[in-house]
Design a protein around this nucleic acid. Structure first.
Lengths: 197, 197
DNA sequence: TCCATACTTGGACAGTTGTAAAAATACAAA
DNA sequence: TTTGTATTTTTACAACTGTCCAAGTATGGA
């Protein structure tokens, strides 16, 4: 990332970055990510190419910015400080809300970008990282052998997996039902042994 | 994919494809994936560019071929037919062996490609799909509400998550210990509620 | 051996990428 | 208003990408 999105930028810079982000979101609803060129983004945002490279390293860097803004706009607060700990369920609910808020955007993205595309992967990875940062100090591994980082990683990917299923796979369910999935997947019991037939 | 790797190719074609795969593996051990150009691969494999595009759509298509060959070479057999069902544990053991066999290759790849790079993601996605195909008919969801596809997806990502931790994150443990992780992560209990302090 | 067919190769092409260095512009302090 | 600084834009560049076509080369059957 060229510019840290956490530090407040001047109005002009903010506007320019927004213009590129909007161009990206619009483009994603129109065509697959790998058909989107930096040239086309500049065309749409009405800024010269050099300005694009002024703010972003490349298309992916702009994507990072886009996902970050998504979280910022929906007042996502998954920071995990000493004072402000979030449980896994609380984090889940927050991200659920984010996906809920942006479901039409997500839907239009999915139209042009298959679930196993590099774009969806990039998106998923971003929010997995966000969730990981949020819950990493909340996992309790006193009773088990698995390292806590691995458990935290597992919880993050599970949360994303469920939301991917619901919002990207288009199997809409209520938050309560989604929470049931989460409990079942994380607290078992899933049977590892299956009788051969 | 331009050529289906499942159907047996003529000797010459096989040799050419292998040459490109080898060039890719060698390059991955030398530099980050996004610094590897098709030109350089052709240089290394000593074939003209047109030949590359004869067999592969692009760099990523070659990667698919590489991962497939990895599975083929280690006699990975995770096909899941009616007659030949594999349990989750059996599948886990097979993929564990594959990672074990190629640990030096994986290590050299990790040197140049961070865990969150598009390369490692591509790799992970490939084997997640392989595992999913292997176990999708083995999951037992009679006692729970979560849809079986989601459970199967969850099991696949969990298996890969553990192997990623062990072989890409360099936390070497025995198969037995790895299986303990798998049981703990899939059959719980992971505590979702954590007392606030 | 010859021929037809399939595959491989070389060269050319338009479009894209990321970088660099000037030129133009905006901005803030004196 | 002027001046100095920072940012934005223009322009140019070398390299890469993916496609195309025509020429070359194998290969196997008759």
């Amino acid at each position: 990332m060229k510019y840290d999105p956490n530090v407040k930028q001047s109005r002009g810079i903010e506007r320019t970055q927004r213009a590129f982000a909007t161009a990206m979101f619009d483009s994603l609803a129109e065509k697959p990510f790998d058909k989107i060129t930096v040239n086309a983004l500049c065309e749409k945002a009405d800024y010269p190419r050099a300005t694009f490279y002024n703010y972003f390293d490349d298309k992916f860097d702009l994507l990072n910015f886009c996902w970050f803004k998504l979280g910022q706009d929906t007042h996502l607060d998954v920071t995990n400080t000493q004072e402000n700990k979030l449980t896994i369920k609380e984090t889940f609910a927050q991200i659920y809300k984010l996906f809920e808020d942006y479901q039409s955007l997500l839907l239009s993205i999915i139209e042009n970008n298959p679930l196993d595309s590099s774009l969806v992967n990039h998106f998923v990875r971003h929010f997995t990282d966000v969730i990981y940062a949020s819950i990493k100090n909340s996992v309790d591994t006193k009773a088990i052998h698995t390292p806590s980082e691995l458990v935290a990683q597992h919880c993050s990917t599970t949360i994303i997996e469920i939301l991917k299923w619901i919002y990207l796979g288009q199997h809409k369910v209520t938050l309560e039902e989604a929470e049931t999935y989460l409990t079942e997947l994380l607290s078992g019991p899933i049977h590892l042994q299956k009788d051969k037939q």
